[in-house]
């Protein structure tokens, strides 16, 4: 029996149900679903209505493999740097299970955390035109629209910044895809059918996030 939601309730449910999905089945994403995802992106807010977003849809396994390698290499470098300076260990002090902690360190420092771009049926490379004022904000809004549509369609996606965050890796992506100088490679969104349901990640309580009129006075008086 299907549940009934108001539009607002349905919107909030899609937002709350979104997960970062990194494991996909072999089932392809239909062209109809991809069209819906791209249309959601096209409707994102844009400063001065500049619409700086451009997308490259990558399905070719060899190109996905190379993008996965670039993403994994970048993540591996950054997380290893965090590990050798002991900052990663500080970040994980709350995790008591030593085996889980070791596994997390291995996954991060090896770069495996980001190589799944190779395994997703579709990678959407989000690019932004540099000759606009609001490139990062506009493209981020478009990405969130895509992620929500992916969720509404029952698909899974992950917003992957790893292959674009370091200018060296971004350059590799740009060469790989033939992106012109006037475009910035912003992120890659992997899309596919999830292999399993995922639990929600914890979120900070709302009363820690919101202030009344100016910084410092809590908007929500009752933490409950």
């Amino acid at each position: 029996m299907s549940e009934m939601f108001s539009l607002a309730q349905a919107t909030l449910k899609v937002i709350q149900d979104r997960r970062s999905i990194r494991e996909y089945t072999d089932e392809p994403v239909s062209d109809q679903d991809l069209d819906m995802i791209l249309e959601a992106a096209r409707q994102a807010p844009s400063g001065e209505n500049a619409q700086p977003w451009r997308y490259v849809i990558v399905k070719d396994p060899e190109t996905r493999k190379k993008m996965g390698a670039i993403a994994g290499g970048g993540s591996g470098r950054r997380f290893t740097a965090e590990f050798v300076t002991k900052k990663m260990q500080e970040r994980f002090t709350g995790l008591q299970d030593e085996a889980k902690k070791r596994a997390a360190f291995e996954k991060l420092t090896s770069g495996q955390v980001s190589t799944f771009l190779a395994d997703a049926p579709i990678d959407i490379v989000v690019c932004g035109k540099k000759d606009v004022w609001d490139l990062p904000y506009d493209t981020s809004a478009a990405i969130e629209n895509m992620l929500l549509m992916v969720t509404a369609l029952g698909l899974g996606a992950c917003w992957v910044i790893a292959p674009c965050i370091d200018i060296r890796d971004e350059q590799r992506i740009k060469i790989l895809l033939g992106l012109p100088e006037e475009l910035k490679a912003v992120s890659i969104i992997s899309v596919g059918h999830p292999t399993r349901p995922h639990k929600p990640r914890p979120r900070l309580p709302i009363h820690e996030l919101v202030f009344r009129e100016r910084w410092g006075e809590a908007y929500y008086k009752d933490p409950a």
Binding site: K66, A69, I70, G72, G73, G76, R77, T80, T85
Partner: peptide
């Protein structure tokens, strides 16, 4: 300064 030198570049095919 602390630099990390990795074994090899990721294989790009």
């Amino acid at each position: 300064l602390l630099l990390v030198v990795f074994d090899k570049r990721p294989t790009l095919g």
